[in-house]
Amino acid sequence: MPHVQLVPTIRRRRLAQTLKKLRKDAGMTSEDVAAALGWQVPKLSKIENVRQQIQPAEVTELLKALGYKQDDLKNAEVFTALENLARDARKKPGWWQTYSGVVSPSYADYISLEEDAEQICEWTPLVIPGLLQTTTYARETIAGTTSSRTPEEIAALAEVRQARQAVLTRRDHPLALWAIIHETALKTRFEIRPTTMREQLRKLLDTTDMPNVTIQIMPSDSTAHPGILGGFSLVSFPGPTPDVVLLENLSGATYVEGDGTQPFTGALERIRATALSVEDSLARIAQIQERHRK
């Protein structure tokens, strides 16, 4: 399975991969496209290998050379998505740059993916997804999983998690989030602040009122499913841009791209089918929340 570590030019990588895939899907060689555009072949090669930027206007011309018609409604999403991606690839890093002292390059890459994403499906067996965490829960879990961060850095990272949640309420096309959480993650206890988990469960219940958020709970007595091998996030984008999968562990983040994401798509369907229904999941959250009152 091809694991690829994304670099800071993540938008350029995604754009280059998509343009290369569309060219191959059209059955055209680099020479064919370069000739149609009046380009030198090395220019197209550099663009597809992320060694040269491409202007939004050049994306438009390239898509036309591949047979896409700009006035065709069926192609409109392709033009819009890739032109915007080319435009965004030239931008400076986003709001998270303010936290560059605590946000690692790989974490910054993922925040960038969230900003561009149309939908994220997460399977989290041990922790509440970051986009659904309260500030206190974030601070306590960050502190509990690291021994090298100062209190100030922990507070800053908790702020980052809260700021990331803006994608769920953005005015234009809020991110669609489908989170499948193992029941075990709902039972964590925090000695310093015992009310942390109860407040976190309340947030989960409140968040389900949002039409773009779906939460399922995997019961402790579930049958075997692919998720027992570990958690992951499947990030999907508008237009033809391929999905990206995030895997996390103590050594950092690993990204899976291209055809390597297909097994995760199938696994996610099986995990969803094994988990409780949305209605039963809400009931289970409320039931566990009541236990945390004791």
Rank of each mutant, 00 (worst) to 15 (best):
L6G: 01
V7M: 10
R11Y: 11
R12T: 05
L15A: 07
T18F: 13
T18G: 11
L19F: 10
R23S: 03
G27P: 05
M28E: 06
T29W: 11
E31F: 08
D32H: 07
A34C: 09
W39H: 07
W39G: 07
Q40E: 14
P42R: 08
L44H: 11
L44D: 02
R51V: 02
P56N: 08
A57G: 07
E58R: 08
L63R: 04
L63F: 09
Y68D: 03
D72H: 05
K74W: 03
F79Q: 02
F79V: 13
L85C: 06
L85R: 05
W96E: 02
W96A: 01
Q97R: 12
T98G: 04
Y99A: 13
G101P: 05
Y107W: 14
D109G: 04
Y110I: 04
Y110K: 01
I111Q: 01
D116F: 14
E122A: 06
W123R: 04
T124G: 00
L126N: 05
P129S: 09
T134L: 12
Y137H: 03
T141R: 15
I142K: 11
A143C: 06
G144W: 13
G144D: 05
S147Q: 12
S148R: 09
R149F: 10
I154H: 07
E159A: 07
Q162L: 15
Q162I: 15
A163G: 01
A166Q: 14
A166Y: 00
L168A: 12
L168K: 12
R171Q: 08
D172L: 10
H173T: 14
H173G: 07
L175G: 11
I181M: 01
R193Y: 14
P194W: 06
M197A: 02
Q200F: 09
L201Y: 05
L201M: 10
K203S: 05
D206H: 08
D206Q: 13
M210E: 08
P211D: 10
D221A: 15
T223E: 13
G227E: 03
I228L: 13
F237R: 09
G239A: 08
G239L: 06
L247D: 02
E248Q: 14
V256A: 09
G258L: 11
Q262N: 12
L268C: 05
I271L: 10
A273P: 03
A273L: 06
A273Q: 09
L276D: 02
S277D: 07
D280K: 15
L282S: 12
A283E: 14
A286V: 08
Q289W: 11
H292V: 02
